[in-house]
């Protein structure tokens, strides 16, 4: 749930935007992190672990634990606790390792 009126910090959520999780539109606000905006929409699972295929979500929110990797506008392995939302952003779960060598292999 978005906090419209913060008891200490006042209002901040004044510019609503739309982001898309697996093509489904969700409400977010300018300046929120992707992981935060998803949490407001009750989306907790952000990806899954490679080996044991277990759900992963936001853990540290400081860009250190790497538990919140997702694919954002075609870019794999984005730390979604650190990247801010943008109107029209397309997001999908981080389900596998990024294809870092794609350019080299194909080139």
């Amino acid at each position: 749930m978005h906090i419209k009126e913060h008891p200490i910090l006042g209002e901040q959520l004044n510019k609503p935007i739309t982001i898309y999780l697996n093509e489904q539109p969700l409400e977010a606000y300018d300046n929120q992190s992707i992981a935060g905006a998803l949490m407001a929409n009750n989306v907790k699972k952000l990806g899954q672990s490679r080996k044991l295929v277990q759900a992963r979500g936001m853990f540290c929110s400081k860009g250190r634990c790497c538990s919140c990797y997702m694919t954002v506008d075609g870019e794999d392995h984005v730390k979604t606790c650190m990247r801010k939302v943008r109107d029209g952003m397309k997001i999908s779960e981080g389900l596998e390792d990024p294809e870092l060598r794609r350019d080299i292999d194909e080139g």
Binding site: M1, H2, I3, K4, H6, L9, Q12, L13, Y29, Q32, S33, G36, A37, M39, A40, K44, K45, L46, S49, Q54, A55, R56, G57, M58, F59, C60, S61, K62, S67, C81
Partner: peptide
């Protein structure tokens, strides 16, 4: 402990104060 919903206490603070979201 890796289940989504388990997080650090500091993460809860930044979600509330930075993102303005109830964790």
């Amino acid at each position: 402990w890796t289940l989504p919903g388990v997080m650090t206490i500091g993460a809860a603070q930044s979600v509330v104060n930075r993102d303005r979201v109830k964790p």
